[in-house]
Design a protein around this nucleic acid. Structure first.
Lengths: 210, 210
DNA sequence: TAGATTGTTAATCGATTAACAATC
DNA sequence: TAGATTGTTAATCGATTAACAATC
């Protein structure tokens, strides 16, 4: 795909459009205009059309977009048309909570594509414990599990001090993308994509406007 | 302050600079150039200078920025030079984990300004339980607690279905900013600022690049 | 057909990067 | 003074918005 040229912000909005379309009744004759989709997603109609235009032509002039069809197309674009296996590395407070949270959503939410396939930690006392049905494995079994379970990405919830080495290890094991919750800057090895989900940066950003 | 004109992305980078400066030994003669600060923060030197220029002149030509001084100035700009009280609304899995996580950081991290002052839920069974030393209060005591504890912002970790009404309630109680973890679009009432910290959007964004 | 809405091109806006005079 | 680095202006880049011909 033309990945290199798609701005991150467009991908993020596609994910929002997908959510809106999942909420909408997508029966056969349900058409949605860029206007309506934009309103529900919180962006302009022009933006919606521009974003979609990056990937093809999905609408009919004078009518709009068939909701079910557009939903499926966007899901395909985002690779959300199939199960995506991911891991959580770091079974501390935050990692464990995110494990429960994502497992529950995978169970209960129609179309939620993200399946937690493994949890890793380094603490021997935690190894073998389960979060719901998913056991905590030692981080040195990561390469093996990644293969077995076809894991493609991970949430990183280790302490800041262990973040970079864990990233390098995850890259070696073949992971392609990583969502970093550790409050530290990490450098993505070639071939790996890292996003930051750093609560304290968000808090600072909010506090500025108080 | 000139809040209205400061781009969000600049505020976010200031928070990163602050973190870098907190890591650096900020003794009296420790000067840091825009070059070095930029490298450590992952941005260009020009960007660092441009960002800082929005708020004043903090450096000396030919020398750089005195690290301790710049740290204090940025902390002041971000309002991180004093304790900022915040609440968590929604004591589910994620809310409770974030409570523990932030309480621990406040205890252990020098200069971490965010203090969790209250936790709210609607479930009678949870009211009165504590997360470390912070009791869970009923959400209908929120206005009162906001006043008592001078709470300025909150993390929103309620179910998606309850998100919007909770936002409205929080705004009425006087909260100025809110970090939304619920996987749904919420509309900020006038005078309130809302950020989204939606894990599933992040996951979608990562999955696209796999 | 008439009205509506797409897909796309052009205009605008804003943020980043480059360059350099000022000055420590 | 000579070398280094700031603060700021100008150039570039990219994303958003507006406008409209194509067409359902």
């Amino acid at each position: 795909m033309r990945n290199r040229k798609v701005p991150e912000v467009v991908v993020r909005r596609l994910a929002i459009y997908l959510r809106v379309l999942n909420e909408v009744d997508a029966a056969g004759d349900r058409y949605i205009s860029s206007q309506e989709l934009g309103e529900r997603a919180g962006v302009t109609a022009a933006q919606v059309r521009k974003d979609l235009a990056m990937f093809g032509e999905f609408g009919k002039q004078g009518v709009g977009y068939q909701a079910g069809f557009l939903r499926d197309e966007i899901a395909r674009i985002l690779h959300a048309d199939r199960t995506i296996n991911f891991a959580i590395i770091g079974a501390g407070e935050l990692g464990t909570a995110l494990a429960r949270y994502t497992l529950r959503r995978y169970e209960n939410e129609r179309g939620y594509p993200f399946r937690l396939a493994a949890i890793f930690d380094i603490d021997e006392n935690k190894i073998g414990q389960k979060v719901f049905s998913v056991p905590i494995s030692h981080v040195n079994t990561l390469p093996q599990k990644v293969k077995e379970e076809r894991i493609k990405m991970a949430l990183l919830t280790v302490p800041a001090s262990a973040a970079q080495e864990t990233v390098d290890l995850a890259a070696k094991a073949g992971l392609k993308a990583l969502l970093n919750f550790a409050p530290t800057k990490i450098t993505a090895p070639p071939g790996m994509r890292v996003h930051n989900a750093d609560v304290s940066l968000d808090l600072h950003q909010l506090a500025f406007f108080i």
